[in-house]
Design a protein around this nucleic acid. Structure first.
Ligand SMILES: [Mn+2]
Ligand SMILES: [Mn+2]
Length: 315
DNA sequence: GACCTCT
DNA sequence: AGAGGTCAACGCGCG
DNA sequence: CGCGCG
């Protein structure tokens, strides 16, 4: 026999690429007892829906080698030991005054997704793609409740949608798998991060102005005073948001799950931020389809939305 | 989690 | 073969 | 500039 075949280890071939999977029996999520093997299996099955949503986006890996409940750390730079077939992209950071070049990765195929799953990481993605890296194709409103209360999040998302519709935008929505929702807008990549963030902040400010007892745009925890924080800072260069269909490092292995607006609106559907997990999201997709199917056929202009909003508030 | 060095 | 140490981010806005 | 924050 050449090489050791540890019981817990397996070599697989995915799209012609060889991957060594390790510690497959290791329990990464207590409670239901979800192993790394099951986690990897999930990413393999979700790949067809997930890959189109993350391709071309530099990744930040939020790694949890000890599983949910243990300490994690972030990794942005491509490690030398990553397989050569993992796509690398060189990125120039303007760190304050200094400048720095960093090599990061993107996930272009199923093999990479499986490889990353074996690293026990949560993929977070940029809001722009490498072929036009300074111009986001996503605008994200991150609704962060102060506690586990979800009602304010639901209302916040619905109000957000109303205002965006007035501005000519049809937003999409997903649970984060943690405590809130992301309201997501596909953009035409004609507006840079700064201007996009400014527009997002203006929208968020309108909502905080309408219901200041419930919503705030203050990032400082002391100033939030129990209110839901509408976080628009994700809309910045080299910043990330949890990838759709990523598995969070939380009990039960909840996933960031694109959902339909009907689910947010209709209380009887009992949407919660952790409703969908590694164990039920595929069934949801089979039964109800992909709620974001239309996303890549749409794109909105921050500039015309801003113009529409201005003329609307003048009247 | 992966890699390296030391025993 | 196994133990043990080491490494793994960054932008924004405020005071 | 350092710090809180995600
Ligand atoms: Mn959030
Ligand atoms: Mn946030």
């Amino acid at each position: 026999m050449n090489g050791q075949r540890r019981a817990n280890t397996r070599r697989v071939r995915v799209g012609g690429r060889e991957i060594e999977l390790t510690n497959l029996e290791k329990v990464l999520f207590q409670e239901p007892g979800i192993t790394k093997g099951e986690l990897i299996g999930y990413y393999g099955r979700i790949a067809p829906v997930m890959l189109p949503l993350i391709k071309g986006r530099p990744l930040t890996l939020h790694r949890f080698p000890g599983g949910a409940g243990e300490a994690g750390f972030y990794q942005k730079k491509a490690a030398g030991y990553f397989p050569e077939w993992v796509n690398r992209v060189s990125i120039d950071l303007r760190m304050g005054r200094a400048e720095k070049r960093m090599v990061q990765i993107t996930c272009e195929n199923k093999a990479t997704l499986i490889y990353l799953a074996n690293l026990a990481c949560i993929p977070h993605v940029w809001l722009s793609r490498t072929d036009r890296i300074n111009y986001p194709d996503r605008m994200i409103f991150d609704l962060d409740p102060p506690d586990s209360g979800f009602e304010a999040v639901r209302y916040g998302a619905l109000i957000m949608r109303e205002i965006l519709m007035e501005a000519g935008i049809e937003p999409f929505v997903m649970t984060t798998g943690s405590r809130g929702l992301h309201v997501v807008v596909p953009l035409d990549r004609e507006t840079d991060f700064g201007e996009t963030r400014e527009f997002a902040a203006a929208i968020a400010g309108m909502i905080a102005g309408l219901a200041p007892d419930y919503f705030t745009v203050e990032i400082a925890k002391q100033k939030r005073a129990g209110r839901l924080f509408i976080d628009t800072y994700r809309n910045s260069f080299a910043q990330t948001a949890v990838a759709p269909y990523a598995v969070r490092a939380l009990a039960g292995a909840p996933v960031a799950a694109p959902v339909g607006w009907d689910e947010v609106k209709d209380k009887r559907q009992k949407l919660t931020p952790r409703k969908y997990t590694i164990r039920n999201i595929l069934e949801r997709l089979r039964q109800r389809g992909d709620p974001w199917e239309e996303m890549d056929r749409k794109s909105f202009s921050v500039r015309s939305a801003a113009a529409r909003l201005r003329s609307f508030s003048r009247t």
